[in-house]
């Protein structure tokens, strides 16, 4: 098994560490590769798009030629996890903020997103969040977080916050507005790994 983490920008090492912890807990092993350039994504069995600045990530995914590879990977039905900026990049449609920066979206999830749905950094927060696949609240960290404001029929809502969707899945794609990689609770990464093992 090979799990790729897009490493152009953002909290890459935190995702790698969270994966290592989650794999250790379930007693399974996989190789993890960080990806900055084209030619690696399609070798992976699963992929993570980390948190970072979506505007920057989107531009470099195109410049480096990785965006098309991620679309191909999606067509093969392989699991993809996007957190925060990742959730934006996976979407089909963005709000005015996304459009005015000519943001490149991968468009593989039938969702419409608001870029800074929860405000600026001073409004960033952590809170106990109810996720449909967990039996107790998860301490979710929202940093200048986006929100999903519209989704198609194939999208399953996993959590809502203030009337916006903050966790959703469509087939093997999982999109989160918060950062499970910043806490030690591995349950969300486990849920993602269940799609792989």
């Amino acid at each position: 098994m090979l799990i790729g983490v897009i490493a152009i920008q953002g909290d890459v090492s935190e995702h790698v560490d969270a994966l290592v912890r989650a794999l250790e807990e379930r007693g399974q092993s996989a190789d993890i590769v960080t990806i900055k350039h084209k030619g690696i994504v399609l070798d992976c069995d699963a992929l993570i798009l980390p948190g970072g600045e979506s505007t920057t990530l989107g531009r470099l995914l195109i410049r480096e030629g990785i965006a098309d590879e991620i679309r191909q990977m999606h067509l093969l039905g392989k699991p993809i996890l996007g957190t925060c900026a990742g959730l934006i990049l996976l979407a089909k449609e963005g709000d005015e903020q996304v459009r005015k920066t000519h943001q490149h979206l991968l468009g593989i999830m039938d969702t419409k997103v608001n870029r800074n749905a929860f405000g600026r950094q001073r409004e960033s927060f952590e809170t106990g969040l109810e996720l449909t696949f967990l039996n107790s609240p998860y301490n979710a960290v929202f940093i200048r977080a986006p929100g999903i404001v519209g989704c198609g029929e194939d999208v399953t809502i996993l959590a809502k916050m203030d009337g916006m969707v903050v966790a959703a899945e469509q087939g093997n794609i999982l999109a989160l507005a918060f950062h499970p990689e910043l806490t030690f609770d591995t349950r969300v990464h486990q849920y993602f790994l269940d799609k792989l093992f």
């Binding site: 920008q9 925060c84 927060f125 952590e126 960290v141 009337g163």
Partner: peptide, 27 residues
Amino acid sequence: DDVMELEKLRHGTELIKRGFAKMQKGG
């Protein structure tokens, strides 16, 4: 009913402040 959720929000914690900086990495 969603507005009630807000009472539990924690702003400006170390995790959130340091987390913001982590999102800038590689940039």
